[in-house]
């Protein structure tokens, strides 16, 4: 081994060694092949790609038939028309039907709004109780019970809306008829309570204890601490929870199909039955929709609209979550 030319610092001419070092050198190149790592990485990349591909595939297959649909129906007529008679008349004819989707959208909107009126106060109340008032033991028992509610099949909820809630409400609000929007809306509200409560509770529990202590030290009681400090600090997570609840309500199918019926009706009166967007899709897709028929294409139009609405809600949610996010 020759004595290397000494320099003050920096790599030697070969770039491999710092020249000041006079002791034995070491081999730092890769010593053994690490196949396992590569396999795992390939699998993970595959998994990530597959979900993207499937999503893109769904979007494409949803939107592709739209060209055919909108070559027969004007976009304005579809979006702003107030009559939807797609299920009637000659199956092969485009011309004897009204293509206004607004009745379906209105029904979805009304029932979602009712659901939120139920779910937001109940969900936030439950979350505030679990996070701020309940003893650790009570929370450990109650939270899983609440989450079981999220596991009840929606068809069971729909059945409850039809057979229990509707007769009850009919007595109270003096309306007849099997179908109405109030019952499925309320039942749907109970269905999304666990979603709202559980996620909001997570967000509230994540608020640092130091903030609560600061509030108590200033003479605030538990209620004021919850409302004025914990809620604002957890707002980002609470908004996300509510928006997820909205998305579930908009996309919910069984409850609105069973509870609100299959008749498209342009009304804001919750005691009336009216078909929701998902209700229409469920009805036609499970019934008689010959491929290539006008009704068949209308499924894709309504489905795309539903998809876009949900997408819009999620985008608004991301905005709001960012806006209210706090760095502690």
């Amino acid at each position: 081994m020759t004595v290397r030319q000494t320099r003050r610092s920096g790599p030697s001419a070969s770039g491999d060694h710092f020249v000041l070092w006079q002791g034995p050198s070491v081999d730092l190149t890769q010593q053994r092949r690490r196949m396992g790592e590569r396999v795992i990485k390939a699998f993970l990349v595959g998994a990530a790609l597959l979900s993207v591909v499937v999503t893109v595939g769904i979007v494409v297959s949803l939107f592709a038939p739209l060209t055919e649909f909108f070559s027969h129906v004007g976009i304005g007529e579809f979006l702003f028309g107030t009559e939807w008679t797609v299920g009637f008349g000659n199956k092969a004819s485009w011309d004897d039907k009204s293509w206004g989707v607004l009745p379906l959208v209105t029904a979805t909107f009304v029932m979602t709004a009712i659901a939120l009126l139920v779910a937001v106060p109940l969900g936030l109340g439950a979350a505030a109780f679990l996070s701020e008032y309940a003893s650790p033991r009570a929370r450990k028992i109650l939270k899983p019970i609440l989450e079981i509610l999220a596991g009840i099949p929606t068809v069971a909820f729909g059945f409850i809306a039809l057979t229990v809630v509707t007769p009850l409400l009919g007595n109270i609000f003096q309306f007849n008829g099997i179908f109405n929007m109030l019952a499925p809306g309320i039942v749907m509200g109970f269905m999304i309570v666990p979603t709202v409560a559980s996620l909001s509770e997570d967000a509230m529990s994540a608020v640092p204890l130091a903030l609560r202590q600061g509030s108590y030290a200033l003479g605030a009681n538990r209620m004021k601490t919850t409302v004025r400090v914990v809620f604002p600090a957890a707002l980002s997570g609470i908004v996300a929870a509510i928006v997820l609840g909205i998305s579930r309500a908009v996309g919910e199918t069984m409850i609105v199909t069973i509870g609100a019926g299959l008749q498209p009706k342009m009304t804001l009166d919750p005691t009336q039955g009216a078909q929701a967007m998902t209700g229409f899709i469920a009805q036609i897709a499970s019934g008689d929709a010959p491929e290539g028929s006008p009704v068949y294409y209308s499924l894709f139009a309504v489905g795309s609209l539903l998809f876009l609405l949900t997408l819009l809600i999620n985008m608004i949610s991301i905005r709001l979550v960012r806006k209210y996010r706090q760095a502690y």
Partner: peptide, 26 residues
């Protein structure tokens, strides 16, 4: 008997609202 903590723990509010918090809640 007021208290100041180890780690600064301002509320996620404006400077003004932080100071006004105590008088308001009491």
């Amino acid at each position: 008997v007021g208290m100041v903590f180890q780690k600064p723990n301002p509320f996620p509010k404006s400077i003004y609202d932080n100071v006004a918090y105590g008088p308001r809640v009491t």
